[in-house]
Write a protein that binds this DNA or RNA. Structure first.
Lengths: 169, 169
DNA sequence: ACCTGAACACCGTTCAAGT
DNA sequence: ACCTGAACACCGTTCAAGT
């Protein structure tokens, strides 16, 4: 339902029909619509994490980072509605459970620890994630309207970050 | 209404009451609720732009950039609901008109042109904006949950970007 | 224990009717 | 030209009643 019609289409009635049940029955499994969207967001984190993890296998940490961020953006473009749920500001009680996000970001932390050193891993991962999320969110919102090819700015940003975080000579 | 209760509180009925009119009358001025939120987003771009512009006065482009990005984050924290409208993915017809975003980003383009050279201004501004937006969006969504002080990562990211974009020796 | 029908309070939006 | 009352189609959610 989300992929087809966006979050507005994820209606308690529509979900109930899809599951073959009446709407009120959903409240036996889930406290409300917001919580349901939070669960979908958690599942989206899991899918995204499964796409990122293999990229950590690249022996060169710098190209591993590039590959991972590129895969991140590709997944967001392939599943724009699900992506929009990852960092949606839902009521705190209905947010994707923290552990889904933590698992999805684990491979990135590993790669940046190799690239920049363990003591800079968390900080570096936050900087890279902020850039990737911000870029993709602006792309999906149609916010790059000043011409040129936004994708070039993405690659430039990734290279710039990878170079700056690389502690090797 | 937005500041008080978030976008959900911006109801056609609530707006009409605030304006002293019946709900159907709003449709004489605005095609629908989505378009109304888009207009609010446009106004938010104007306010943000007014906060960023003075930072361009700093004679050192690198500290001008730091000041501008810091002001950006401060404004987002002060008006989280309005900020959430800037890059919300509304139906294209209801998005904040492009010129509001363009005006708000003009001072940043100017500063980065001074720092990195005019031919890298657009690309650099996109990288910096992506980082700033992504970071703030994740903060507001409560996405930094792995401990430490996220603000340190923000400062580190800004310094890293400013240094990487600086073409001066 | 689980599902349902009916109801409640609330939406966005349309439109004929008033002035 | 502008505003309104009434209505329509749809929400999320609650709850007593069934099985």
């Amino acid at each position: 339902l989300l992929d087809e019609g966006g979050p507005d289409a994820v209606t308690m009635l529509a979900v109930a029909e899809r599951v073959g049940v009446q709407a009120p029955s959903l409240y036996k499994r889930v406290p409300g619509r917001a919580a349901l969207l939070g669960l979908v967001g958690g599942a989206a984190f899991d899918e995204l994490g499964a796409v990122l993890a293999p990229c950590a296998g690249d022996p060169d940490p710098r190209s591993a980072l590039r590959g991972m961020v590129t895969a991140y953006r590709a997944w967001a473009h392939a599943h724009p509605r699900a992506y929009g749920l990852l960092f949606a500001d839902l009521p705190a009680a209905a947010r994707p459970p923290a552990d889904h996000g933590a698992r999805a970001s684990a491979p990135l932390l590993g790669v940046i620890a190799r690239l920049a050193g363990p003591h800079r891993a968390l900080e570096g991962a936050r900087v890279v994630t902020a850039f990737a999320h911000g870029f993709v969110a602006m792309e999906l919102a149609g916010a790059f309207r000043l011409g040129g090819d936004p994708a070039e700015a993405f690659d430039a940003g990734v290279d710039l970050l990878a170079a700056a975080l690389d502690r090797r000579p």
